[in-house]
């Protein structure tokens, strides 16, 4: 297991390096000159541009720039213009000249909370519904659930979000309007402020997970080893939860791993729908403002998050399936 984990972590580091390299060089070859973006109206004078180039380190060879950038993330750096940027250093925003990292740490809790909370919601609800359907296979519950999931499959966050706010927050008053979490100072408030956004975000995933879970469970229940377990007298309930669910869980986790990207996507749309301030709005503003360092940072940050979650998913998979762990 330790070996498995080391391999995964080493692999993840390589992948992250590759991602940073590709993004970095992608931005580098973009036709727009960052120096011109940074200097605004004063760019008519080529000497000014050259000075800015020097200040931003753009006159160095590209591999040197990349190396400085990566090093900066780990040990911090002194920018060529003498500004100090402590680790982890992602440079300074072109738009307001502020260091990137504090802005990121300010924003990511919202997105991360949404992603984690939303995932928890749709896994519990979706997988639970799917299991119930499989247990009641062919009966009324199963049929009703599968019709509902067809409807659920076609809704969008920005459509049900406002509806849910109007119904549950404004009219019924059951749930808080969504607001940004401040876990350090107000954990309960943060939680209640996330319930509605997380539930709304989870809706788009429910139907898929309930249908997948149902068919995986039905498939598992038809497996030979289920028949063996029943042949040795284990009860239907035991067989369902211990044997079939274990097999289905492995596949559900795989599907979840593939969905991680869309989960972050969903979190970003949810932020916008509920007017929250997370990485999504940050990224959108960075793109609109041509704030390259910020775009880079958000990209690297979300890529790292997805890679880390992927390791967690792989680990969970290895725990469930000994064939992965022991070969």
């Amino acid at each position: 297991m330790l070996r498995f984990l080391t391999r995964r972590v080493l692999g993840a580091i390589v992948i992250l390096l590759a991602i940073t390299a590709v993004t970095y060089f992608l931005f580098f070859v973009l036709p727009s000159d960052p120096a011109r973006l940074a200097c605004g109206k004063n760019c008519s004078n080529p000497d000014v541009v050259k000075a800015i180039h020097h200040r931003m380190g753009l006159d160095l060879p590209v591999y040197q720039q990349y190396w400085d950038y990566i090093r900066g993330i780990f040990v911090g750096r002194h920018m060529p213009d003498g500004q100090n940027c402590p680790a982890p250093c992602f440079g300074f925003s072109f738009v307001n000249d502020q260091p990137i990292w504090p802005t990121l740490t300010d924003r990511y809790p919202t997105t991360l909370s949404l992603a984690v909370g939303g995932s928890a919601a749709f896994l519990v609800i979706g997988v639970g519904l799917g299991m119930l359907s499989a247990w009641q296979q062919g009966k009324t519950f199963d049929r009703v659930a599968s019709s509902i999931s067809l409807v659920g499959n076609s809704v969008q966050i920005y459509f049900i979000g406002p509806l849910a706010i109007a119904l549950f927050a404004d009219n019924l008053g059951w749930l808080d309007h969504g607001h940004d979490p401040t876990w350090g100072s107000d954990p309960t408030g943060s939680f209640s402020g996330l319930v509605l956004p997380c539930l709304v975000m989870s809706v788009i995933f429910w139907s898929n997970y309930s249908r997948q879970t149902r068919s995986l469970m039905v498939e598992q229940l038809a497996e030979d080893h289920i028949r063996t377990a029943r042949a040795k007298g284990m009860s239907s309930r035991y067989v369902f939860f211990r044997y079939a669910l274990r097999g289905a869980a492995a596949s559900i986790i795989t599907i979840f791993g593939i969905d991680l990207g869309s989960v972050f996507g969903g979190a970003i749309i949810t932020e916008a729908t509920f007017g929250l301030h997370g990485l999504g709005t940050l990224a959108v503003n960075a793109v609109l403002g041509l704030d390259l360092p910020m775009e880079m940072a958000v990209m690297i940050f979300s890529a790292s998050a997805i890679v880390i979650f992927n390791i967690l998913v792989d680990t969970a998979y290895a725990i469930i399936d000994p064939r992965i762990r022991l070969s």
Binding site: H225, A231, K232, G233, M234
Partner: peptide, 24 residues
């Protein structure tokens, strides 16, 4: 039947790779 299965009567299946659970 559940109480009889495995105790009074039991079964040996053909394909032992699929007939045993890979997870336990």
């Amino acid at each position: 039947l559940e109480k009889l299965r495995g105790k009074k009567m039991s079964m040996v299946f053909q394909d032992s790779l699929t007939a045993l659970s890979p997870y336990y």
